[in-house]
Structure formats: structure tokens, C-alpha cells
């Protein structure tokens, strides 16, 4: 094994609605290397969180097919006992909302200590407390001894997120999954938390999957980026390529819909239509085609696959070769005349 830490192969995670199963993650394959940050970007309903939960085995009622290879083992559908050994020890997770992710009735120090207790059974209570205080120090909490006995509601949002991070890194996991870690935080706090995660990564030599809807966060943090739409990866590339030379219509539309640095652009790009719900996901053809109706049907593949357009740069469907923005074509004409 080289430096590959996690390999997801043809993962399909389906939820049961009434009598049928619907795939929220549909045939996703990707790899994560050690010491790498893989950003997964998508809007709500893209399946990005369902993917993270599948890796952590946190879905309670879902059908999981395909392989999740981690530490020489396929961990999709392994026994709860085996899973619990891995979780918190070899892989850990940081959550979106630091208030609800903490037990309101337990001192925060104890909540971090629990992660250690579960995996280092021979440690004494005193050692454990020392370790937690160390961790609190590491994540930048000013008075760790005092904070240990405080309850979540006594801390600010940024401090709570540091507690969550301390819990996640308590046993030096090799794989860290951060699910929208800064969405609930203020900008200045967001910057601090992102810096913290970056520093910790260098410290621990861990692989990080960063799930977010915020392209800015991805641009700041990720080494490679996967863009998800309707349960599938539509584009995957290293971060610079993705921002410099995005191919898939969805990626390009997303980037265009953000207010940009230069103020020349007056109107933001709007993606037509809405993200289809799980039950209404198109299961055939290009899933994004309905939202770019001005592109001719023949531009799409019948069964869109990921094509390697450059080394390490994969794009789903052939429609990207024919894609243009509706207003763009007019501009080009104008430019051509002048």
C-alpha cells in the first residue's frame, strides 16, 4: 500500500421511503491520501453528508452497497463492535452545529474524555484529565483547567467547535471527516477554525475529508476537490485546476453564481430549476441536463461516466464540451462585432 488511506469504490447509499429504496449516494468512487485534504462540494441534497455518514457508519437505516476500504479492510457493513473500534480511534468526525453536537448535560471536558476512555481503557482518570487539558490547550482554549468542567451552553460557538475538534483529534485519528465545520460560525471565527484544522493536519499527518457548500472554504483548504450533484461526483480535480479550469456545467454555474471579487458583474448567474428531491432524482442520462435546457440533448451521454480530461481531472458526461452560458454567447457576439 502506498500513501492511499481511504478508497471508496462504487458506493451506493440508499434510503427507504415508503416501499422503495432511493440512492442518495449513487455510485461514488474516490480515494483519499495521507496528509491530504479532499474537499467535497455540493448544495443541500447533493449527497455529500450522506457520503460522510456512510464512511463513518453513522446511518442507522440505510442500505449501503459497494466498498469502503480503510486500513486494509472493507468497512462498509462491518459489525458494530469492529466499527466502534475504528470510530473515534482511527477515524473521527467534526460536525456542523457545535451547539447541538454536544450533550447539554455533560461537562465538555468529560465529553472529550469519553473519546479517550472508549479507546484507551488502561488510562487512569487522572491521566485522562491531563490528556484532555492538553488537548484543550492544543485547540486554543484559554483556560483549559477551568473549561474542563464547564457545560456547552457556557461557551461561545467558536469555543464549542474547538471542543468538538478536540474530541475528534483525541486519539490522533488517521482519517478526519469535517462536515460543514464552519457553516454555523462567524467569519472571523471561521478563519480561526480553518487555520486550526490546517495546523492540526500538519501535526497529525492525517487525511481530511472536508464537506462544505462554501467554495471559498474549499479554495482555502483543499488539495483536491470533488463536486457532487444529485448523488454523484460530477467533477474531481486538484484545487487549482478546479478553480482555474472548471469543466462541468454545474461547477461552472456554481462558481458563476457567487458574488465575485471584481465588481464588474452586475447580475449573478442563476441555475435554472431546483435541486430535485431524493425521490425525483433523474436516474437515467445526465442528471444536470434538466437545469441547462438550452444545451442540446445530443450533447449528453446516454449513461454519463467520468472522463479523464487531464491527468487527475475527471468530468462526468460529455456535455461540458458543448456548454455555454445563455448570456455569454450573446456577449461573445457583441465582442466579435466590436
Amino acid at each position: 500500500m502506498s500513501k492511499e488511506l481511504l478508497e471508496i469504490k462504487n458506493l451506493k447509499t440508499s434510503f427507504r421511503i415508503k416501499d422503495d429504496y432511493y440512492a442518495a449516494v449513487d455510485d461514488v468512487s474516490l480515494t483519499l491520501n495521507k496528509n491530504e485534504v479532499l474537499g467535497i462540494v455540493g448544495e443541500s441534497g447533493s449527497g455529500k453528508s450522506a457520503l460522510a455518514f456512510s464512511v463513518m457508519g453513522l446511518h442507522t437505516r440505510a442500505k449501503i452497497e459497494g466498498n469502503i476500504n480503510f486500513k486494509d479492510e472493507n468497512i462498509a457493513n462491518i459489525s458494530p463492535a469492529k466499527l466502534n473500534k475504528l470510530r473515534g480511534e482511527d477515524m473521527a468526525m467534526i460536525f456542523q452545529d457545535p451547539l447541538t453536537a454536544l450533550n447539554p448535560l455533560m461537562p465538555v471536558g468529560e465529553q472529550i474524555a469519553e473519546a479517550i476512555l472508549l479507546h484507551k481503557k488502561d488510562m487512569s482518570a487522572k491521566q485522562r484529565r491531563e490528556k484532555v487539558v492538553d488537548l484543550l490547550n492544543k485547540v486554543g482554549i484559554p483556560r483549559p483547567e477551568h473549561t474542563y468542567d464547564q457545560f456547552p451552553h457556557e461557551l461561545s460557538g467558536g469555543m464549542r467547535q474547538r471542543i468538538i475538534i478536540a474530541t475528534a483529534i483525541a486519539n490522533q485519528p488517521e482519517l478526519l471527516i469535517a462536515d460543514e465545520p464552519t457553516t454555523a460560525l462567524d467569519v472571523t471565527i471561521q478563519a480561526q477554525i480553518l487555520d486550526l484544522i490546517r495546523d492540526l493536519k500538519e501535526d497529525m499527518n492525517a487525511g481530511i475529508i472536508l464537506i462544505t457548500h462554501d467554495l471559498g472554504v474549499v479554495a482555502e483548504m483543499a488539495d483536491r476537490v470533488a463536486v457532487m450533484y444529485a448523488g454523484q461526483i460530477v467533477e474531481i480535480a486538484d484545487v487549482e485546476t478546479l478553480f482555474d479550469n472548471p469543466k462541468h456545467p454545474y461547477t461552472r454555474s456554481l462558481l458563476n453564481s457567487m458574488p465575485s471579487e471584481d465588481e464588474s458583474q452586475d447580475k449573478l448567474h442563476v441555475i435554472q430549476g431546483i435541486v430535485p428531491s431524493l425521490q425525483n432524482l433523474p436516474r437515467k442520462g445526465c442528471r444536470f441536463s434538466a437545469r441547462i435546457p438550452w444545451i442540446d440533448e445530443s450533447a449528453h451521454e446516454e449513461n454519463p461516466e467520468l472522463h479523464e480530461v487531464a491527468p487527475g481531472h475527471f468530468v462526468r458526461c460529455t456535455c461540458h464540451n458543448h456548454f455555454y452560458f445563455p448570456d455569454e454567447s450573446k456577449e461573445e457576439q457583441v465582442n466579435g462585432v466590436s
Binding site: 467569519v187 471559498g216 472554504v217 479554495a219 482555502e220 487549482e240
Partner: peptide, 22 residues
Amino acid sequence: KRLVAAIPDIDPKKREEKKQFR
């Protein structure tokens, strides 16, 4: 200044620059 500096930059190439600035 701090608020403006905290806005994530959409350009990954400016990452180091941005971090230093921050």
C-alpha cells in the same frame, strides 16, 4: 480589517499569501 481579511479567497493560488496577510 480583520473582518475583511477573514473572507475566504476563491483563488487557491493566493492561499499562502492570504494566510500570511491574515
